[in-house]
Each structure stands twice: as C-alpha cells, then as structure tokens.
C-alpha cells in the first residue's frame, strides 16, 4: 500500500517533468504548424514508457540506493582516512554517472551521428563501443571531479579559481581538439548531472561540509555539481585528441 502511494507520487512528478514539453509541442503543432504529428500512436506509447520508467527509476533510487549512499557519505564525512574518503568519492562519481539515463541517451546519439558521418565504422559493434568508451571517459572525469571537489572542501580552496582554471583549460584544448568532438564534449558537461548523480553527490558534499569546522554546508555542498559539469568537457576533448 505504502509503495503504491509512493509510486503514485513519483508518477505525478514524472508527469510534471514532461508536461511543459508536451504543452509547448502541442501548442506549436496545433497553432503554428497545423500539421499532423507523424506516428502519433507510437510516440504516445513511448511517452507513457518515459513517465512510468522515470517514476519507477526514481522510486527505486529513493528506496534502495540513496539511503545507503547517504549513510556511507555521512560515515566517511565524520571519521575515516582521507585516502578512503577520496577513493569513495571517485567510485561514487564514476558509478553514478555510468547509470545516468541522459548520458546513455546522448552517447548513443553521438555514436549514431559519428557512424553516419563515417568517422567510425557503421556496424553495431563500432557504434556500441564508441558509445561505451564515451560514457567511460565521462564517468572517469566525474570521478575525478568529485575527488577534486572533496579536496576543495577539505582544504577550503575558493571555487571560482578552480572553475576559471577549468574554463582556460577548455579553451586551450578546444584549439587542438578535432572539430567533430567539440560539440559532444561541450554537451557532456550538462548531461552528467541529473537524476542519480546530483542527490548522491550533494549528500556527500553537504555531509562533509557539515562535519568540518568553518565550512558552510550550503555553499560547499553545492560546488561539487559545478565540478561534475566542467570536468567531462576537459576529458572528452582530451579523449578526442588522443583517439
């Protein structure tokens, strides 16, 4: 009974996420374009899948993964060696990013586009391995980003210097990276931080900042996400150069 109620609430949340997009599209279709939407039945089935899938996904995270993640983050924040804490930070960033739905979507799309343009071979194997490698690079970069963010909280470094250094690095790498990776790299920053990563990483940041004297939980808990946004751009650009 309780779980049915909880899933009902998640369904409502997922609908609320989707509603603005559907409304805008419906408006443009009905008022501006006045064209029939092709394959409408298939799309509607897909939308139902999105809503139900998102609801189940988030409910599962809330009841299963988030409680352990939060309790471990808290335990590490209060005691334990710095090495283990950093190891945990890396693993958390890496693991959460691998499971991020938006990244799975973008990696698949990038592989499709690269195959059509002839940058990689057109068969399924080449596409899958391209998408997989891209996701691994992004996940590794988020791992490092969280490590850096935790170090920042421990040492009290000011956030804007690190971010500006990151911007400068991105600018320099862009000059040398091949054109076809630049768009994907810039987009990689935005997709890493959604459903799974934000709550887990915020729990770690807030837990740490609360337990260390002189740190503001509100400010230091936040900075981690900004790093997780910037680091993938640098890593994917570098990956494009090495490839």
């Amino acid at each position: 009974m309780a779980i049915a109620l909880a899933i009902g609430k998640r369904l409502r949340d997922a609908l609320r996420d989707l509603a603005p997009i559907v409304l805008v599209i419906a408006f443009f279709q009905a008022v501006v374009l006045q064209q029939p939407f092709p394959n409408l039945g298939n799309v509607l089935v897909g939308l139902v899948c999105v809503v139900v899938g998102l609801a189940l996904f988030i409910q599962g995270l809330e009841s299963g993964l988030f409680p352990i993640g939060e309790s471990i983050a808290e335990a590490f924040a209060h005691k334990g060696s710095a090495t283990l804490l950093l190891a945990f930070a890396f693993c958390l960033g890496f693991g959460a990013t691998v499971a991020e739905p938006a990244l799975i979507a973008i990696a698949a799309e990038a592989a499709e586009v690269a195959a059509e343009a002839g940058v990689i071979a057109g068969d399924d194997d080449a596409r899958l391995s391209y998408a997989f490698n891209l996701r691994m690079v992004v996940a590794t970069s988020v791992g490092f980003a969280i490590v850096l963010g935790v170090l920042r909280i421990l040492k009290g470094w000011p956030i804007h210097r690190l971010i500006i250094t990151g911007y400068v690095l991105v600018t320099i790498l862009t000059v040398f990276a091949p054109d076809e990776i630049v768009g994907v790299a810039y987009d990689a920053g935005g997709v890493t931080t959604s459903t799974i990563t934000v709550p887990l990483v915020t729990a770690l940041g807030v837990g740490l900042a609360t337990s260390i004297k002189g740190r503001d939980p509100m400010l230091d808990g936040f900075g981690l996400i900004a790093f997780a946004c910037g680091m993938p751009v640098i890593f994917v650009l570098a990956y494009g150069m090495v490839m």
Partner: peptide, 10 residues
C-alpha cells in the same frame, strides 16, 4: 522503460 520511451518518443 525510460530508454525504450526515449527511442520511441523523446
């Protein structure tokens, strides 16, 4: 389910 909906709808 979400990934299927992604392919079919989004």
């Amino acid at each position: 389910l979400f990934l299927i909906g992604l392919e079919r709808a989004l």
